[in-house]
Structure formats: C-alpha cells, structure tokens
C-alpha cells in the first residue's frame, strides 16, 4: 500500500509522544476513578462524590493526597522484593502496551517543527505486542498475591492464573479473524483498512463480541472481577497493599481499560477515520469514551461469575465459537 508521505519521525517527537501518553493517560486513569464513581452512583440514583470541589471534582486531589501520604506497609512475612515490585509490573506493562497503540492523531508542533506521531512506536507486530504486554501485566496480581503471605492474596493470585488461562486464548483467536482480513498486525493498517469501507464490526460481529468479553476478563472488570472481589476474597491480590503501591494497581487497571477501548475502536469500530461530519480525533475519543462507559455500565448492571464459570465459559463456549469464526472467515476469504 502506498502511504502518503509523512514527515520523518524524530527521537524528539517520540519522546514528546511518550511523555504525552504518560501524562494524559495517568490523568485520565485518575479521572476515570471519579467518572466511575459518578456513573455508578447515577445508575443507582445516588449523587456520588459531592463535597470536595464542585460536584466532587476535586475528590481526585483528595484521593491523590491520601494515596501518597498513607503509610506504605510491607507485611512481616512477605517476600519484600517481589511485594514491592509487583505493582510496578502492573502499571509499567499497562503503559508499555500503550506505546504501540495509536492514541491521538499525529500533529506537528508549530515553531519548533517537531512531528509527533500518533503511535509512539509503530512496530509491525503492534497488536501482538499490545496483547502480550497486557497479558504480562497479570504477573502483577499473580506475584503480588503470592508475595504477601496472606491467604486471601493466595486465592487472588490463584484466580489470576485461572483468569489468565481462560481469556488469553479467546483474545488471540477472536482478533485472529480481523487480522486475517487485514493481513497485517499493525494498527495503522487496521485503521487504513476501514478508511473507505465499512467498520470491521460489520464483517466480524462474533469476533467483536468475543473480544469485548475477553477484554472484560483482561481488565478484571465486573462480570469477571474475580481477582479482588471484595465480597469473597477481601481484596484478593491487593489485600495487603496500601498507599501508592495499591494506587499503582489501580492506575494500571484503568490504563488497561483505555487500551482495550483503543484496540476495540481501532480494530473493530473504524479507528480514527473521519465519520460523516465528525473529524477522526473526535471519533476515536468518542469510541474510547463509549467503551469506558460501557464497562462502568456493565458493572452497574450485571453480577459477576464464579472462577469455574469463567473457565467453563471461555473454554467450552467462547473458544469453539472463536475457532469456528476463524474457519468461516478463512473459507469466505478463500472463496471471495
């Protein structure tokens, strides 16, 4: 495919992009906690946080102060090194995954003339890299649960393993069918594939649904929030964590939610192409925002499943569906 001539990507541009992603996504992840509390409250006809700042907007600052100043407790019998490193794994992998994801459209900073690309690094195995990084992120909960010498933590990490074994197959297989159609693993190619034609979700509705389900499992969102379901396992892998270490798990989880939103938007929902009168940047923000909202909405509406139900669902229902979907896609591609 003959791409339009883009300005050269310089190191300065990539660094600016990386800082931009880090700053904006951390801010959004923090803001996401506020949005989540508000939306859940509205759906239950409550007001949510109201008292700190106008409509509780400064609640974020209050939470930040609390998280930063809380005592950082490491339990006596914990494996201290692993305990300390585990939250960093979750947060770091979440942000590393975002490096290969197109987050904003590209632009050129005026005056200094630095071109900032839409992806920090457009590697040719983009999707694999992102999914792999998000999967590696589950080492965070896994190690955290095992390092803290707490039985709830152990149960939490056991559930992490179960969850990991369950959904990872579905994620890969569900996204395989679109990959076959596009013939590339780069997000940019996915985006360009849908520039003129219909959105991928029209061709691959089954894959889309499977991917969304797996995405919920990947981000530990409500129907599959087994790792830390407080009614059953106190807080699961995060039981012994406090202060900023706990906050890092949280930021990682919200960053992952955004990543899943981006992948769903780029792979299935038309990416950052212009749509009717709306410019591309608005469309991608709207799509990501809707994915985020959908995750909160589901949390307000649906109960969560047991670990064995998750395994059963993933291996006995979703995986066959995904495989059939891949086969049918292959046959159709062969014939057409």
């Amino acid at each position: 495919m003959e791409a339009t001539i883009l300005p050269e990507v310089t190191a300065a541009g990539v660094i600016i992009k990386a800082v931009l992603i880090l700053a904006v996504i951390s801010a959004i992840a923090g803001f996401g906690t506020f949005i989540e509390r508000k939306i859940l409250a509205f759906m239950q006809r409550r007001l949510g946080p109201m008292h700190v700042g106008p409509h509780g907007l400064l609640q974020l600052a209050a939470d930040g102060i609390k998280l930063f100043t809380k005592e950082d407790i490491i339990p006596q019998h914990a494996n201290k090194v692993v305990f300390a490193v585990a939250p960093a794994i979750t947060a770091a992998t979440a942000f590393i995954a975002l490096a290969a994801v197109p987050v904003f459209p590209d632009f050129t900073i005026p005056f200094v003339d630095i071109y900032v690309p839409s992806i920090a690094s457009d590697i040719n195995v983009g999707i694999l890299f992102v999914l792999g990084m998000m999967a590696a992120g589950l080492y965070g909960p896994l190690l955290a649960g095992m390092a803290q010498a707490n039985k709830w933590g152990i149960i939490g990490s056991a559930r992490t393993a179960i969850q990991f074994l369950s959904y990872e197959v579905i994620t890969g297989l569900s996204i395989l069918a679109p990959i076959m159609m596009v013939g590339s693993l780069s997000f940019v190619d996915f985006n360009n594939y849908q520039t003129d034609g219909l959105w991928m979700v029209v061709y691959q509705p089954v894959a889309f649904v499977l991917f969304i389900i797996a995405g919920f499992a990947e981000t530990n969102r409500t129907p599959f929030d087994l790792l830390e379901h407080e009614a059953e396992v106190i807080s699961g892998y995060a039981t012994e964590y406090s202060g900023m270490r706990w906050g890092m798990f949280f930021i990682g989880e919200y960053a992952n939610m955004i990543t899943i939103g981006v992948i769903a938007a780029v792979v299935f929902l038309g990416g950052y192409n212009d749509f009717w009168i709306f410019p591309g940047w608005l469309m991608i923000i709207a799509k990501i925002a809707f994915s985020f909202f959908f995750m909160l909405w589901v949390r307000a509406a649906w109960p969560h499943v047991r670990p064995d139900q998750l395994m059963w669902l993933c291996w006995k229902v979703l995986m066959p569906l995904a495989v059939i979907n891949v086969i049918i896609t292959g046959i159709v591609m062969m014939l057409v």
Partner: peptide, 26 residues
C-alpha cells in the same frame, strides 16, 4: 435478560439525572 439489566440501569440513570428522582439527601 442481560440487556434488560443494562436497560434498567440506564433508565434509572436517566430518571435520576433528568427527572429529579435522585434519592440522595445531602
């Protein structure tokens, strides 16, 4: 049924925000 659940929460959100059916007493 799952979508009924989604619809109910969305409807209640609309009720709370636009029809003054918020329960909270501050």
């Amino acid at each position: 049924e799952l979508f009924v659940g989604l619809w109910v929460t969305l409807r209640e959100m609309g009720n709370a925000l636009f029809r003054g059916k918020m329960h909270t007493t501050q």
